[in-house]
Simulated assay, not measured.
Amino acid sequence: MHSRRITSFVDLFLAAPMKSLLLSVGPIALAVGQLANSYVNGLSPTIAIGFTVVMVAFAIVATGHHAAEYRLRQLEREFRASK
């Protein structure tokens, strides 16, 4: 099952690379940038860690939604081909 998830994640990136990048890597990069920004500027770590948790959760949910949308398109394509 684990290798199936990795394969489908790679397929997702191959099918829609920009959307996949924006939904999964973008929020995590933003969170890391915010953590670095808070360290450099002396901002409270609680705020930065809270922001990071929210952005990682967003990346997980958005990537899952994008994967479900991709699987649905594949199923519809297979259904039309079988008619």
Rank of each mutant, 00 (worst) to 15 (best):
F79Y: 11
S38Q: 07
S3A: 10
V61Q: 07
M55R: 10
M1V: 07
G64M: 02
E69N: 11
A31R: 02
M18N: 10
A15W: 08
L30D: 11
R5G: 01
G42Q: 02
Q74C: 10
Y39P: 00
L22V: 10
I6Y: 00
H65D: 14
L23Q: 09
K19G: 03
M1D: 07
H2G: 14
Y39G: 08
A29C: 08
V56T: 08
R77T: 12
T52S: 15
A62Q: 05
V25I: 15
A48L: 06
T7E: 07
L43Q: 13
A15I: 03
L23W: 07
L75E: 15
A16G: 03
G64R: 01
A15E: 12
A16N: 09
F9K: 08
S8F: 02
N37Q: 09
N41L: 14
S82Q: 14
E76A: 05
S20R: 00
E69K: 14
M1F: 09
A62I: 01
F9M: 09
Y70A: 14
V54F: 13
V54Q: 08
N41T: 12
I60W: 05
T7R: 12
A67N: 05
L72I: 10
T52W: 07
L12D: 06
H66L: 09
R73K: 13
S20H: 02
V32L: 15
A68D: 13
A31Q: 06
S3W: 06
L12G: 01
A48H: 00
G64H: 07
Q34V: 12
L21M: 07
V32I: 15
A59S: 12
N41E: 14
I60T: 13
G64C: 03
M1G: 10
L35Y: 04
N41G: 08
A48T: 04
A68C: 08
P17K: 00
R73Q: 15
V53M: 14
I28M: 09
I60H: 06
V25D: 03
L35P: 00
G26K: 05
V25K: 04
A16H: 10
M55A: 15
A62V: 01
L72H: 14
E78L: 11
S24K: 06
V54H: 05
Q34E: 12
V61L: 11
R73P: 04
F79N: 15
T63E: 01
S44T: 09
Y70M: 11
G26C: 02
A15D: 12
F79K: 10
S44I: 00
V25C: 04
S38G: 09
V56Q: 05
L21F: 14
I47C: 03
S20C: 08
G42A: 05
I47T: 12
G33D: 00
V25W: 08
V25N: 03
Y70R: 07
Q74N: 11
V54N: 08
S3K: 06
V10Y: 05
A81M: 08
L12C: 03
H65M: 15
G50P: 04
E78S: 10
F51K: 07
L21I: 11
H65F: 08
R5S: 12
V61P: 04
Y70D: 11
S44D: 13
D11E: 13
A57W: 09
V53Q: 07
Y70L: 06
A67F: 06
L12I: 00
A29L: 14
S24W: 04
I47P: 04
L72A: 13
G26M: 03
